[in-house]
Amino acid sequence: MTVKDFVLGKTVWRESKRQTAARPRLRSLGTGDWLAAVSGVILAFAALCALFPGWIAPYSPTSMEADRVLLPPGAAHYFGTDYFGRDIFSVVVYGARDSLLIGVASVLAGGLAGCIIGAAAGIAGGVIDLILMRFIEIVMTIPGILLALAIAAVLGPNLFNMIFAVAVSMVPGFARVFRSQIISVKGRAFITAARSIGMPAPRIFFRHVLPNAWSPVLVMATIGLGTSILTAAGLSFLGLGVVKEIPDWGTLLSQGRGYLTVAWWISTFPGIAITLLVLSGNILGDWLRDRLDPKREQR
C-alpha cells in the first residue's frame, strides 16, 4: 500500500506540475511592452514617411506660398509654415528620407567597422590590442562633431561624405564596447568548456562568443541612430551639409533657429521628430535586449 501510494503521490504531483507549466501564462502586458509597441509604430511611421512621403504629406515640400508665411500650427497646416511659406509638416515628412538614410547608413558603417576593430583587439589581445586601442583612444580625444566636421570639410559636402564623416565619429564607441564585451565573454567558463572539447577557435568565436556579445552593441546602435542624426544636423547647420531643395531634419532645425522667438514651430517640430525617433529606437533596443536574453523568458 505504501509503495503504491508513494508512486501515486509522485505521479499525481508531477501531473499537476506539468499542467501548471503547460497552462498559458496570462501575464498582463507590462509597461515595457506597451512602450515598445508605441515605439515600433513610430519607427514604422518614420520609415513609411521615408519611403512614400507623397502618401502622407498634404503639400509639396517645395511649394512656397507668399501669402502664407510664418503661420502658426492650425487645421490647414498642422505644424505651421516657415518664412518661405512652406508647409512644415510636409517638409518634415519629406525630410525623413535623408535623415533616416544618414542615421541608418552611418550607424551600420561605423558600427561594423568599430565591431571589427573591437573584436580584433579583444580576440588577439597583447600588442595588437594595445596598438588598436591606443589608436581608438586618440580618435576619441577629438570630439565626434569636430572629427566629422574636419572630414566633411576635406571631402566636400555631399551625402556620401557626410555619412562617412558621421560613421568615423561613431567607430571608437563601438570598438570599445565590443572589445570589452568580447573579453568578458571570452573569460567565461563555457568558452573553456568549448575549448576542452576541441572546438577550433573560429568556430568558438562564431558560435559562442559572438551571440553572447552583441546585445549591448544592438542597444548602442539604436542610441547611435539618434546621435548620428544629430551629428548630421550639426554639420548641416555649419554649412557642410548636403545642399538640397528638401532639407533633412537637422538642416530644418538649424534653419528655424533664427526664428525661434517669432515662430517657435519651425525648429520645434523637426526637433520633436528627432527626439521621438531617438527615443523610440532606445526603447525598442532595450526591449529587444531583454527579449534576447533567454533567462528572462520565464521566471
Binding site: A189, F190, T192, A193, I197, G198, P200, R207, H208, N212
Partner: peptide
C-alpha cells in the same frame, strides 16, 4: 593546433559550476 584538438576527444572536463560552463542561449 588540429592535432591537439584531435587529442581532446580522449580527455574531457566537468566543471564546478555547471551553469556557467554552458552557453545560456
Amino acid at each position: 593546433g588540429a592535432r591537439l584538438r584531435n587529442m581532446r576527444r580522449h580527455m574531457q572536463m566537468v566543471f564546478q559550476d555547471a551553469g556557467s560552463s554552458m552557453n545560456p542561449r
